[in-house]
């Protein structure tokens, strides 16, 4: 544990950098994938094309992507913007199909009923579709969060610091402990984010964790 004892401040700093790269990428992925998923759910043909194309983006190898993005968006190569954009591309690719399924999981009868009692179409989206899509959206987001945290390590390949720096540095200098710390820290960050998302999901969907009715305790109708 000598390396960690000497370098724990460095590890903390890299953990912070790691979070500053992965959290914005996850948020952006959700913000971009949810509207696309909604569109895909409403328009089948267009939706099939869009989700198909989005899923293909996941097949782009990481290194070329890290080089294409600065060229397309005009970011400097070694910038966190490049890494966040690349991770967002992968995040969106992972999440679009789940987002479409999330809106597909909303009971059409409930939507119609909401319209029939006087919700406007916009209000149906915000007050019915979106909240009822949360459980499926959230399970997709958890996959994206874990995957993003582990993918952030590739940022180190182009010199953007994160926990991946421990892996590249450890390999080059032959410090096994540094590599091990990098791997463990990455897993811990992923687990913590996943736990936070799980907790947020439970807080956002109180109706989903109420016990089902049992005929004997429910009483009340006279």
């Amino acid at each position: 544990m000598t390396w960690l004892a000497l370098s724990w401040e460095y590890v903390l700093e890299l953990t912070r950098d790691h979070l500053l790269l992965s959290v914005p990428a996850v948020l952006l992925s959700v913000l971009i994938a949810v509207p696309i998923g909604r569109l895909a759910n409403r328009r089948r043909v267009l939706g099939g094309l869009v989700t198909g194309a989005a899923t293909l983006m996941y097949a782009i190898p990481a290194l070329p992507l890290l080089i294409i993005i600065p060229a397309v968006f005009g970011f400097p190569l070694r910038s966190s913007a490049t890494v966040v954009t690349a991770l967002t591309v992968y995040g969106v690719a992972l999440l679009v199909r789940t987002a479409a399924d999330a809106f597909g999981s909303v009971d059409a009868e409930v939507r119609d009923a909401a319209l029939a009692v006087g919700h406007s179409p916009r209000s149906v989206f915000w007050h019915v579709d979106l909240p009822l899509a949360i459980p499926v959206l959230l399970s997709g987001t958890r996959v994206v969060a874990v995957s993003t945290v582990s993918l952030v390590t590739i940022g180190a390949l182009i010199g953007v610091p994160g926990l991946g720096s421990l892996l590249t540095d450890g390999f080059q200098r032959g410090i096994t402990e540094e590599v091990a710390v990098g791997v463990v820290a990455t897993i811990v960050v992923a687990l913590v984010l996943d736990g936070l998302l799980l907790a947020a999901g439970r807080a956002l969907t109180p109706w989903a964790r109420t016990p089902r009715r049992s005929a004997k305790t429910a009483g009340g109708a006279r």
């Binding site: 009971d107 009868e109 409930v110 909401a114 029939a116 009692v117 007050h127 019915v128 009822l132 109706w207």
Partner: peptide
């Protein structure tokens, strides 16, 4: 629709409210 009361077969209640 807001000026008319509407009752549906399965209640049509919002499950999350």
């Amino acid at each position: 629709r807001r000026s008319i009361g509407y009752v549906l077969q399965h209640g049509g209640l919002l499950p999350h409210r």
